[in-house]
Amino acid sequence: MIELVNIKKGFGEKVILPDVSAVMETGKVNLIIGSSGSGKTVMMKCMVGLMEIDGGKILYDGQDFTNMPEQDRKNIRRQIGMLFQGSALFDSMTVEQNVMFPLDMFSTGTLKEKKARVMECLERVQLKDAAKKFPAEISGGMKKRVGIARAIVLNPKYLFCDEPNSGLDPQTSLLIDKLIKEITHEFNMTTVINTHDMNTVMESGDHIVYMYQGKKQWEGSNKDIIFSKDEKLNDFIFASDFLRDAKEMRQMEMFQEKDWRNKLKKS
């Protein structure tokens, strides 16, 4: 797991994260949500070491990532997969070459072994037939799946995703959410997603941290959200009348399911 212990981050006199503690759990899809300016992007950048924190600790499975020697940090980074918001594929490389890039950088395997691993990952995201295509020849959703294949090609323990559904239609977004969740559980990874997509929150949120003005306002699962009494969280998640009505309907369904289970136990 990844543990944040009283982390602080600011730029000059502007404090972004005054004092945040949270745990990103292993084998779960951990979401960081919040409105623009809430500190969620800075929080993720601090976790992967793109920004240095001003105080506190970041622990990877108990190891102090904040204060460890640079070589040890590199070893941690080799266990991290990253899915970028814009996919960040190399236009001049084929799909196969894009996925192989991390292996060329960090693996000592033979070309045959690397190609076998690449095809294994492309098959996992159902893109084996697109291996020889260039990014310009595939759709936005396919590019995201290539990004996922590249992120997992080194068998990472930790997967970070920055707005994985940005720019995608609702149906494709659900497919990406499902794929990330399946891979997380399948490989028992610690997955951290920075998102404002409410479908992702309700469908994939095994563990959710809601940030408000740089502070952790709420923490729980997507099921906990349905019954949350936190006004700031509810105003953010259920911002429209339609979503508030949907919340009430879901509450009724969950109560009915609970009543049904209780009746079954009695019988």
Rank of each mutant, 00 (worst) to 15 (best):
M1Q: 13
E3T: 12
L4V: 01
V5D: 07
G10I: 09
G12M: 08
K14D: 11
P18W: 06
S21L: 05
V23Y: 09
M24P: 05
G27I: 07
K28Q: 10
V29N: 04
N30Q: 11
L31D: 00
S35C: 01
G37K: 09
S38I: 00
G39I: 05
K40S: 03
V42S: 13
K45H: 15
M47A: 14
G49F: 04
G49D: 03
M51C: 10
I53N: 01
G56F: 05
L59G: 10
D61S: 15
Q63N: 08
F65Q: 02
T66C: 00
I76P: 02
R77P: 00
F84E: 06
Q85V: 10
S87C: 09
A88L: 15
F90E: 09
D91F: 08
V99K: 02
M100R: 13
M100A: 14
F101M: 09
L103C: 11
L103W: 07
D104K: 15
T108Q: 09
G109P: 00
T110D: 01
L111E: 08
K115L: 14
A116M: 04
E123Q: 14
L127V: 06
A130Q: 15
K133N: 12
F134C: 12
P135Y: 06
S139M: 11
G141S: 05
V146I: 12
V153Y: 01
Y158G: 02
F160C: 05
D162M: 03
D162A: 04
N165C: 11
D169G: 10
D169P: 09
L175G: 03
D177L: 04
K178I: 03
E182I: 06
H185C: 08
F187Y: 15
N188L: 12
M189L: 10
T191W: 00
N194K: 02
T195K: 02
H207K: 11
M211F: 09
K215P: 00
Q217A: 12
G220C: 10
G220S: 12
S221G: 11
F227W: 08
E231A: 15
F236D: 05
D241H: 05
L243R: 05
A246N: 11
D259E: 15
W260V: 10
W260C: 11
K263L: 12
L264Q: 08
K265N: 07
S267N: 15
